[in-house]
Simulated assay, not measured.
Amino acid sequence: MKKYALSIGMVSLLGCVSAQADTLLGLYAGAQGWNMETIGGFSDDGTNIAFNFEDKTQGSFYVAFEHPIPLVPNLKVQRTGMDTDGKVSLTTSFTFGDELFTANSTALTDIKLTSTDAILYYELFDNDLISFDVGINAKYLDGELFVIDSEDPSTSGREEFSGVVPMVYSRVAIGIPTTGLGFYIEGSFLSFDDQTLTDYQAALTYSLMENLAIDMTFQLGYRSVEVDLDDLDGIYSNLEFKGAFAGLELHF
Rank of each mutant, 00 (worst) to 15 (best):
G46A: 02
G30Y: 11
G41D: 10
F42M: 05
Y169H: 00
I176V: 11
S156C: 00
R158F: 06
E226G: 04
T106P: 03
T116R: 08
F65P: 04
A50V: 08
L229D: 05
I111G: 05
E99L: 03
D22I: 13
F101C: 11
L108I: 07
L190H: 01
T47Q: 14
A244D: 03
N127H: 07
D233Q: 14
R171V: 07
G59A: 05
F252W: 14
L100Q: 15
D149K: 13
Y121P: 05
G182F: 09
Y4F: 12
F245T: 00
D149H: 15
I130F: 15
F65A: 06
F245M: 02
K3W: 11
T38A: 12
D83E: 07
S89C: 06
L190D: 00
A21P: 12
Y222D: 03
L75D: 06
I8N: 08
Q58K: 08
D55I: 03
M1Y: 13
Y236R: 04
E160R: 15
T106M: 03
P166V: 05
A118H: 14
L239D: 10
F252P: 09
A64I: 06
G40S: 05
G247S: 03
Y140H: 07
E240S: 12
V164Q: 02
G59S: 12
D44G: 14
Y169E: 05
